[in-house]
Nucleic acid binder design. Structure first.
Lengths: 140, 140
DNA sequence: CTTGCAATGAAAAAGATTCTCATCATCATT
DNA sequence: AATGATGATGAGAATCTTTTTCATTGCAAG
C-alpha cells in the first residue's frame, strides 16, 4: 500500500493524498471519520483543507483503497482496505471497534441473497454490545 | 399498536404522535426517513413541524416502538417495530428493501460476540445487491 | 521547461438533525 | 366540566456533516 496505489487508481500523486493514505496506514485506531483525519493531520503540522479530506476519502473509496462504514453517530467512518473482508463489533459504551470474520455467516449471506433473487455485491454486519472492559458492563 | 402504546411509553397522546404512528402503520413502504414522514403528513393535509417529526421518531425509538437504521444515503430511516427482529437486503439500484431472518446467522452472532468478550445488545446486518428486477441487474 | 488539466483550499451552500422559546394541549385533579 | 401544572408543539435559529464553487496551484506528459 503506497503511492503506486494512488497512481493505479488513476489519481495524481499529491501531498494531501500521500498524507491521508499514510495516516490511514499508521494510525492506531483503524476507523476514523473525515473530521478525525483532518484534525490529526493539522495536529501533525500538515496544511490541508477539510473539503480535500472528504474528496480524497471518497476517491479512495471509489478506488477500493478504503471502505466507508455507516455506524451509529451521524457521521461516516473510513478504514484502510487491507484486502481481507471482515465485519465489526462495536462497544455501545466506549466505542471500541473489534473486527471479525466468520465463514458460516459469510456463506449463509450469499445463500440468503440468492434465495431472495438478489445478487449480493456487499454487506454490512455490525454487532453492538458491551465490551470486556468492566467500565462498559451493564449496571456499572 | 395503537394510542395505548404511546401512553405506555410515558408520552402524552397528542395529535402529531397519533398521526406519525398511524402513518408508520399504514404506509406502503415500511422504511421511511423523517423527511418522508413529514412530507407525507403535509400531503395528507396535516399540520405538523419537521422538528416534531424528528423528536417523536426519536422518542418512539427510545420507547422501542420504532427502529432506526443507518443505511447508506446520509440520512436515517425508521421502521415500525412489529415485534419480530429481522435483517435487511437493500437493492443498490432501486433502493428496494426486503426483510429476512436467519436463525443460523442469529445464533452465530451471539456466539461470536461471546467469543470476543462482548455482551451483544443489538446488531445490524444489511446485504447490498442487485434485486430481481431486470432493470436493476448488472450491465443493464 | 512548458503547459494542460487535475487537484487544492477557503468559503459558501446544501442537507440532516437538534435546540430554543413562546405558545398551546393534555390530563390528573378539582 | 373547569383548572392548572407540565409536557408538547411549531417556527426558526443553530449545529453538524458533507458537497459544491471557484480562483489558484501543482503534477506530469511531452
Amino acid at each position: 500500500m503506497d503511492n503506486q496505489d494512488i497512481r493505479k487508481a488513476g489519481l495524481k500523486v499529491t501531498l494531501p493524498r500521500i498524507k491521508i493514505l499514510g495516516l490511514l496506514e499508521n494510525n492506531s485506531q483503524r476507523h476514523v471519520s473525515a473530521e478525525d483525519v483532518y484534525k490529526m493531520l493539522l495536529d501533525n503540522g500538515e496544511e490541508i483543507g477539510l473539503a480535500t479530506v472528504y474528496r480524497v476519502l471518497t476517491q479512495f473509496e471509489t478506488a477500493g483503497l478504503v471502505t466507508r462504514h455507516n455506524f451509529e453517530g451521524g457521521h461516516a467512518v473510513f478504514e484502510l482496505d487491507r484486502g481481507g473482508h471482515h465485519d465489526h463489533m462495536v462497544c455501545v459504551v466506549c466505542g471500541k471497534v473489534e473486527e471479525f470474520i466468520d465463514t458460516t455467516i459469510e456463506k449463509r449471506q450469499r445463500e440468503i441473497a440468492k434465495e431472495h433473487g438478489f445478487e449480493m455485491v456487499d454487506h454490512s454486519l455490525i454487532i453492538y454490545g458491551h465490551c470486556g472492559n468492566p467500565k462498559c458492563k451493564v449496571g456499572y
